[in-house]
């Protein structure tokens, strides 16, 4: 009864290790935007270490896909213009299986909110 469960756990651990090995690194992974301009315009670099060819996909208005066939190429630089988070997915070009993913987070740079002060702080009653 326990054997299938142990086997499943074993497979999960192995898969996790495999994904970690083929991790997709995004730099930078955070884009801060000013309150008056909510759009993020940034160049990001995706890096990976997997030996096989890969395809990089991203959903930005429409689906974009870059397939890297040169085995020595282990990174890809992209210019991104977005108002929301962008998900990058690395796939095996032959099986289309997802190998890894990375996310570019877009966050507003919040300035301290101030308001009028109605009383003189040093008023003598």
């Amino acid at each position: 009864m326990l054997l299938p469960l142990i086997a499943l756990i074993g497979q999960s651990v192995a898969k996790a290790a495999e994904i970690k090995e083929e991790a997709l690194t995004l730099s930078p992974s955070l884009c801060l935007v000013s309150p008056d301009s909510s759009r993020c315009d940034i160049q990001v670099t995706l890096s990976w270490s997997t030996p096989q060819p890969v395809c990089i996909e991203l959903e930005l208005d429409e689906l974009h896909r870059w397939c890297i066939t040169e085995p020595t190429q282990k990174s890809l630089a992209l210019n991104i213009s977005t108002e929301s988070d962008v998900h990058f997915v690395m796939r095996d070009p032959t099986t289309n299986q997802q190998l890894a993913e990375a996310v570019l987070r877009v966050k507003p740079l919040s300035e301290p909110q101030t308001r009028r002060r109605f009383r003189n702080p040093w008023s003598i009653f």
Partner: peptide, 22 residues
Amino acid sequence: AENTCDDTTDCIRQGSWDLGIA
């Protein structure tokens, strides 16, 4: 309400205590 603080009035940061002693 909107953020209308400018240099014609004294301003204070919203949501934090202003403590002082003279």
